[in-house]
Simulated assay, not measured.
Amino acid sequence: MHTELVSEPGDPARPNEDFAAAALPASGQGGVVVVLDGVTPPRDGTGCLHSVPWYVAHLGGALTELTVSLTDVPLAEALSRAIARTAQSHSATCDLSHPRTPQATVVMARWGAETVEYLVLSDSALLVESPDGAVTAVLDDRLSRLPRSALATDTLVDATVRNREGGFFTAAADPMVAERAVTGVLPRHEVRALAALTDGATRWVEKFHEGTWEDCFRLVRKEGARALVERVRSLENGDTERKFLRRSKTHDDATIVYAEL
């Protein structure tokens, strides 16, 4: 297995709220990729004593351990267990019912001798390359399909569409959300490489429309994950009239894990 991991904060003065891990189990016959994008908290608080980076580190650490050590447990079940474990670790001190309790998007992939499993929850992305070079984007597009009017304010989002039917879902404190993830299993021989990206990196495709998902994957393969982040940063800096960024933050945490199986 060959891997490359790049993670860069949107603002060097603020903690990176992304998490990334790539692991090779002791059997040497497979691997695991875990990528999380912490949801930036509102200014008026989350009902939690802990920061988003704290939550993402705990959830990501639990996911990495569970997906490596329990290879017979499906990824959705591993996510459910990791959410429950993380929630239990701070339920006595924090209001986990708060709609903005620390939370994150999730991308996972795990492969062995015969299969490649995947899971995507919310707006990070998994790109899968087949041996013939075709690239498939595995996406949870529920957030992008919501009308802009439904996302007008944080208060409206929290009250009507965040972790609600007809809206979108993130990993927060409810283990049942794992059932909402996009999951699947592919034959190992149909996958040559994959890339997991947070939405700070997918901006190259989704906000700036510089190319297709296949173009994005080829850029990472040929020039490296760092090159994609640098191109995104250049586009962000050049969008002074906010034609593409609109109300989004100028720079977002950007994480890419590339793996050749």
Rank of each mutant, 00 (worst) to 15 (best):
V6S: 06
G10W: 06
G10H: 09
P12V: 13
E17P: 05
D18A: 11
D18Q: 02
A20Y: 09
Q29T: 11
V32K: 05
V34H: 06
V34E: 06
L36V: 03
G38I: 07
P42H: 01
T46S: 15
G47S: 07
H50D: 10
W54D: 14
L59H: 08
G60I: 11
L63G: 13
T71H: 10
V73I: 09
V73S: 06
A76R: 14
S80A: 15
R85S: 09
A87W: 00
P102E: 07
G112T: 02
E114K: 01
Y118D: 09
Y118C: 03
L119I: 08
D123I: 09
A134M: 08
A134D: 14
A137W: 11
R145H: 15
R148V: 15
T155W: 05
N163R: 06
R164M: 13
G166K: 09
F168P: 09
D174C: 12
D174G: 11
V177F: 08
A178Y: 07
L186M: 14
H189K: 07
L197M: 09
R203F: 04
F208V: 02
T212F: 05
L219F: 02
R226M: 08
A227H: 11
A227G: 08
N237A: 15
E241T: 14
R242D: 09
L245Q: 12
S248L: 14
A254V: 05
V257S: 03
Y258M: 10
Y258L: 14
E260M: 04
E260S: 11
